[in-house]
Write a protein that binds this DNA or RNA. Structure first.
Length: 424
DNA sequence: TCTGGGGTCCTAGGACCC
DNA sequence: TCTGGGGTCCTAGGACCC
């Protein structure tokens, strides 16, 4: 039985989401910006053709936007998350064996479909997703996940493929590997690409000709796995159930420069609460909390500071109130007067299932009461949206928050505004 | 003036134990 | 030249992903 994987990848996903609700933007250059409208994180083909690179700082393309040549959106993750769910639900109609790999990509195990007309089946998947969600996708099919990635990339690039490429024939596989630049291989980043190019390894095909020992020596077992995958030996299985996260991080750059402790405190409390909610959503608790804050490293003329502090919690928790409390202690330990802070964040680690908590002997927290309160907060957040119910430390003003000047409405999830409610 | 955010895995080296 | 040997656990750092 031969393995067969499809990689379904949404084209310019964030931009495509915006286009679904703005069809006039079809065939026009569109970009989506990162938080704070900092840099470009998604581009349509038309925007790529204008020479806008990935990660380009916004100020460098501002004139293109202001002169109307490019349409820019602030990122709207609520919208993209909801559209992603729709795409993934559609894909799940075609096979139960699906791994949601990222917000815009899924692997499908098509092993059971061997011998059928795979190209026609993949084409039908592409048509159906387009019809039901409005999102264009590209599909690559091959015997391993790494080769499906190769196929997907070519499916996107080649006009002839028109968005669907099946690579099962050995001759076609070799041609595809020869046509794939080493830096375009899944798992080869900038460092390894430079290292390999220096040694004359310029394509994915060159890489497959290396010896296992050499690859292990220079690229660890991760490299060996990739080598085997590209040679057609499947080593990476489909991960159908998402394992709980081992670390959860909430951090942001500020929309403006911040130097007061109070503003940093409000931001940190909000990040701690966000981490707590993410923990509850995956039914976990954390044993450790880290708070960091730093200045803008791009401002070379300003004094620089990076502070970080980790605190071991007495008992693992997912409570807003507790995490905000310890985040505050950590922040007080690292805060230094006289710096312009640009970014701060909260990371929770030492994550365990919530039904596996070791209670402390000296524990004085009423955990049941906390759990009930958090349940109420989560319920209200689900109904009324983020930030409508919160612990008072998170603040009322929030002038430190994100800048997003070009935000589209949350077309799919917004249910109307209500007054913010505070919990003390 | 303006440069994202959130994850994963692997390895090496130190602490500690018997 | 030669310092016991062999585990485990933890952390920091480096690579990668979208």
């Amino acid at each position: 039985m031969t393995s067969l994987y499809a990689l379904v990848d949404c084209n310019s996903f964030y931009c495509s989401c915006e286009r679904v609700f703005n069809p006039a933007l079809n065939h026009r250059p569109v970009v989506v910006l990162s938080n704070n409208d900092g840099c470009v994180i998604a581009r349509t083909n038309e925007a790529k053709e204008l020479g806008i690179p990935m990660g380009e700082p916004y100020f460098k393309i501002r004139n293109l936007v202001e002169s109307g040549q490019v349409h820019a959106f602030s990122s709207n993750y609520e919208l993209y998350g909801d559209m992603s769910d729709r795409v993934m639900e559609t894909l799940a109609r075609f096979t139960p064996n699906i791994e949601v790999y990222s917000i815009d990509e899924s692997f499908l195990d098509l092993g059971d479909f061997y011998g059928r007309d795979i190209f026609e089946y993949a084409s039908e998947i592409k048509r159906t997703v387009g019809k039901w969600t409005g999102i264009p996708v590209s599909i690559g099919v091959a015997p391993t996940k790494a080769l499906a990635k190769v196929a997907n990339k070519l499916a996107k690039k080649s006009r002839k493929a028109n968005g669907v490429l099946v690579l099962t024939n050995p001759y076609h596989l070799q041609k595809a590997l020869e046509a794939t630049k080493i830096e375009d291989v899944w798992g080869i980043g900038g460092q390894y690409a430079r290292f390999l190019r220096k040694r004359g390894i310029n394509t994915a095909y060159d890489f497959t000709q290396l010896s296992e020992n050499w690859v292990r020596q220079h690229m660890t077992v991760v490299g060996v796995r990739l080598l085997k995958e590209l040679r057609g030996e499947s080593c990476l299985e489909l991960e159908e159930v998402t394992p709980p996260k081992k670390g959860i991080c909430t951090s942001r750059s500020f929309g403006k420069k911040v130097n007061s402790f109070d503003e940093l405190q409000e931001a940190t409390a909000s990040y701690a609460a966000k981490c707590a909610r993410k923990l509850r959503q995956q039914k976990s608790c954390a044993n450790l909390i880290t708070v960091f804050a730093h200045t803008n490293s791009f401002s070379e003329n300003e004094p620089q500071y990076y502070g970080s502090k980790t605190i071991a919690l007495p008992v693992a928790t997912s409570s807003d109130i507790e995490l905000i409390h310890y985040a505050d202690i950590a922040l007080k330990a690292i805060y230094r007067d006289g710096y312009w802070y640009k970014k701060s964040g909260v990371i929770v680690t030492g994550i365990i299932p919530e039904d596996n908590i070791q209670l402390g002997l000296l524990d004085t927290v009423d955990r049941e009461k906390h759990a009930r309160l958090m349940g109420v907060i989560d319920g209200m957040t689900d109904r009324f949206g983020r930030g409508k119910v919160k612990v008072a430390t998170q603040g009322l003003d929030n002038s430190w928050q994100l800048r997003s000047d070009y935000l589209s409405p949350c077309y799919t999830t917004r249910i109307g505004e209500i007054q913010t409610v505070y919990v003390r």
